[in-house]
């Protein structure tokens, strides 16, 4: 546990010192632009539009950040050979990977928290205040971010090229939004090959339908059970990706 927390702490510090403020600054610009645009709208429309715009921006910025950070997370340490000194201490490779992953997700989560604070502040000015539902939506974005982080980490270790890992991560991220459509097409397909391929892709790619809390935003909010399953899915998918990453990482020589 001490080794995981030590790796977690230095990874977190490294990200915070390097990049975290960039995402918050970018988000600030998005919010400023959004506020200027919505100021021309009617009072009831303003808060709704700012809410949607802000949450979409937080999600997009968090996902881009986590993919960028995780695809280079291990490869940069291999390139700089800093990994030599870490792995020549009594550190299990699985502990190292877990610490690096958790440190990165935590750094992105801090960025999310800063963005959310700015967003909520602005929404309050426009008269919107539903903190519990807002937190639930944010937790879903965090779940999605963790899943994409774990997937990007796995891809970076499997492909050993940042560009290829990033391209695949974006591809799987897109597929993840069409899981139910892929399963529907597989059911309708007459070709056994196509059916198998579609089913395989729909299971391999993350199913982001589990995290679409914002789809319910203007209807009745999903209950605690829905949120619990989103959490279970995020944990299970991330754990599976990390377990495969450990398998690949164990075979690596430096």
């Amino acid at each position: 546990m001490q080794t995981i927390s030590a790796v977690f702490a230095y990874t977190f510090k490294e990200h915070i010192r390097h990049k975290a403020w960039l995402s918050a600054a970018l988000f600030g610009l998005v919010l400023l632009g959004g506020a200027i645009i919505v100021s021309a709208l009617g009072a009831d429309e303003r808060a709704r539009l700012l809410l949607d715009l802000g949450l979409a921006a937080i999600e997009a910025i968090s996902l881009v950040s986590v993919v960028f950070l995780t695809v280079s997370l291990i490869l940069v340490e291999i390139e700089s050979r800093a990994i030599y000194l870490i792995l020549t201490h009594p550190v299990r490779r699985s502990d190292y990977l877990l610490g690096r992953f958790l440190g990165t997700v935590a750094a992105v989560a801090v960025g999310m928290a800063v963005m959310a604070a700015m967003h909520l502040g602005l929404l309050t000015l426009y008269g919107w205040w539903e903190p519990l539902r807002y937190l639930a939506a944010l937790a879903c974005v965090l779940g999605k971010t963790a899943v994409m982080g774990a997937l990007s980490l796995l891809l970076s270790l499997a492909l050993t090229s940042e560009a290829a890992a990033m391209a695949f991560a974006v591809f799987l991220w897109m597929l993840g939004h069409f899981s139910s459509e892929m399963r529907f097409l597989a059911d309708r397909s007459g070709s056994a090959f196509l059916k198998t391929a579609l089913v395989a892709f729909s299971h391999a790619a993350p199913d982001f339908a589990h995290f679409n809390y914002r789809d319910f935003w203007h209807q009745a909010a999903p209950g605690a059970e829905w949120l619990m399953w989103a959490g279970v899915y995020a944990l299970a998918y991330s754990a599976a990706c990390l377990a495969l990453s450990v398998q690949l990482f164990d075979q690596k020589e430096f």
Binding site: T3, A9, Y10, E14, R17, A82, Y84, L85
Partner: peptide, 28 residues
């Protein structure tokens, strides 16, 4: 075991103290 490679492959974003604190924790 203590190991020093041919060049100092250290994480340059950390301070000298933070770096050594990390390795102390990793060394249990």
């Amino acid at each position: 075991i203590g190991y020093a490679p041919e060049a100092a492959y250290l994480n340059k974003t950390l301070t000298g103290r933070e770096n050594l604190r990390l390795f102390a924790a990793l060394s249990r």
